[in-house]
Design a protein around this nucleic acid. Structure first.
Length: 221
DNA sequence: GCGACAG
DNA sequence: ATCTTGTCGC
């Protein structure tokens, strides 16, 4: 087969996403986690910095943390975030030096145009249970959760529910919880609720976010 | 054609 | 994501 015209720069990537999305499994968590990881990326001066943290479960006691830095090689394009950040996230997670039972990723899971947000992509790539925690929605619509803390509303995409909008803190905008891989809607919500400690973001993602920004790294005069 | 658009 | 000081509100 010979292609006719020029192919969009992300056609190959989109095709890979559609293929990997078929590997995503939405099912109850295999068992109660013992170690939960959190990952996030930040960037500064064309350098990507991925941070991973490891917490005991359900105490949420810090057990390990790791950083990975590398040059930005791929631009951010909505719908293709994983091609920009996944490798760095995996490296940071490897830096933890031990396996974990679940990973919470800063980004979307199945709430994605082709069903493979970065949380799902990471879960499939590492063959580990994963879920996404994002601060806004890439696709789909959601029912605004009530004003009371822990209120929830479903996230809809193509007539089916793909996650939850969660009011994790009073007065704060909701966060979006979506299954990544080897977990289901109820499991993703349950784990997220149990990982909250009074902040808008659950501990795994919140701590990874702080670490990626760098401890005592920001100071301007 | 126009607007939306994880981080 | 990042650029940025002070400021409004619980």
């Amino acid at each position: 087969m010979v292609r006719k015209g020029p192919v969009g720069p992300f056609e190959g990537a989109a095709e890979l996403q559609r293929r990997l999305a078929q590997e995503v499994r939405l099912c109850p968590l295999a068992g109660e986690p013992r170690l939960v990881a959190g990952v996030d990326c930040s960037e500064r001066d064309r350098t990507i910095r991925a941070a991973a943290v490891l917490l005991s479960w359900p105490e949420l006691t810090p057990a390990a943390e790791a950083l990975f830095e590398g040059p930005c090689r791929v631009p951010y394009v909505p719908g293709f975030l994983s091609f920009r950040e996944l490798d760095s996230m995996v490296r940071a997670l490897e830096g933890l030096g031990m396996p974990f039972d679940l990973v919470m990723v800063d980004g979307c899971g199945i709430a994605h145009p082709r069903g493979l947000g970065i949380a799902s992509h990471l879960g499939v790539a590492l063959n580990v249970p994963s879920l996404g925690i994002s601060k806004s929605l890439l696709v789909g619509s959601f029912e605004e959760p009530g004003p009371d803390p822990l209120s929830i509303g479903p996230i809809w995409l193509n007539r089916s529910q793909v996650g939850w909008a969660l009011r994790s803190r009073r007065g704060a905008r909701p966060i979006f919880v979506t299954p990544g891989h080897m977990i289901d809607l109820d499991g993703a919500l349950d784990v997220t609720l149990r990982a909250l400690r009074g902040y808008r973001l659950p501990e795994p993602t919140r701590l990874a976010d702080l670490l990626s920004k760098g401890p005592c790294q920001r100071k301007k005069r």
